[in-house]
Design a protein around this nucleic acid. Structure first.
Length: 284
DNA sequence: ATCAACGTATTC
DNA sequence: GAATACGTTGAT
């Protein structure tokens, strides 16, 4: 029930069986570009904290806790119960990480990232967020080596919630963009990962450096030209437009070469945008 | 909304 | 370090 057949095919780790899968695996195994290697991991702890704050804001009971979202049963009862399989869906009330209004199915996304090798689990003792140890610690279990990710019989991660509860769950925005304003590179159609943006260098994660005190615009990722639109394909500057005439001071590309995608306002927030305009379309 | 200028990320 | 170009900001 977690993954549609097309996605299950995509995530089949038994080996590449199609040219698309072979290409995807090759791309994943290729070394990062220099600029991508310099990308710094983006911790989800801030996101989770924000989510928690939002939950408090929206909850009139004021007793809402992210623990309740991540471990509804653990937060309410089951002190000595053996580990229950994680519910596929949290209660529909309040903010729901598993079926958020914005389509942010975080666990699914992270599962895909991990399977694609784009998500790293980097536990550090000092990087345990305020929610660190949730779930696993509650049952006296330890996450060993930071790679304790179990899959259920359906091949889905059932023990992912403790990872969400810790801030050592990190993403590498250079390798994996969670915001693709010019169109996502994960394509649901055809059951294959498009990965169009990976080889070229995926850009577009925003907000990672926009935390208070980071200096605002400094550190914000730059999007890149799509290279496919008419302006991008145009060769040479016109040398007549204002951008060309003010090249030294304006620092702008020729107006006739300005990428159509970059003309649009960049997407904001932690979300995937697909050509269809839907986030995580395979889950809809 | 458009434009110019600037800051700065990125590439060479 | 220079050149290029994206993002932001302020002026119009």
């Amino acid at each position: 029930p977690y993954l549609p057949p097309s996605m299950a095919d995509t995530l089949d780790m038994s080996g590449p069986s199609s040219p698309e899968q072979q290409r995807a695996n090759r791309i994943l195994s290729e070394p990062l570009r220099r600029s991508l290697k310099r990308s710094h991991p983006c911790s989800l702890s801030e996101y989770l904290n924000n989510t928690n704050r939002i939950a408090h804001h929206h909850s009139s009971s004021s007793s809402t806790d992210i623990r309740g979202f991540l471990h509804p049963t653990a937060a309410q009862h089951r002190p000595n119960q053996p580990r229950q399989p994680k519910p596929h869906r949290a209660p529909s009330s309040n903010i729901d990480l598993w079926d958020s209004p914005s389509g942010l199915h975080l666990a699914h996304a992270a599962e895909l990232l991990m399977r694609a090798g784009a998500l790293t689990l980097t536990p550090t003792p000092k990087d345990q967020g305020p929610l660190g140890g949730l779930g696993a610690g509650g049952n006296g279990e330890e996450v060993e080596g930071g790679s304790r990710v179990e899959g259920d019989s359906m091949g889905c991660v059932t023990d992912f919630l403790p990872l969400l509860g810790c801030s050592w769950f990190s993403l590498n925005p250079g390798l994996f963009a969670l915001t693709a304003g010019g169109g996502g590179f994960l394509t649901g159609g055809g059951g294959s990962m498009g990965m169009a943006g990976v080889g070229e260098g995926v850009e577009g994660l925003r907000g990672e450096s926009s935390s208070p005190g980071s200096g605002g615009g400094a550190g914000r990722r730059k999007r890149k030209r799509c290279g496919e639109c008419v302006p991008c394909r145009r060769m040479g500057n016109c040398e007549e437009c204002s951008a060309c005439r003010n090249r030294k001071t304006g620092h702008q590309i020729c107006k006739y070469r300005k990428c159509e995608q970059l003309k649009k306002k960049a997407a904001t927030g932690l979300e995937m945008v697909f050509p269809s305009g839907a986030a995580f379309p395979w889950l809809q």
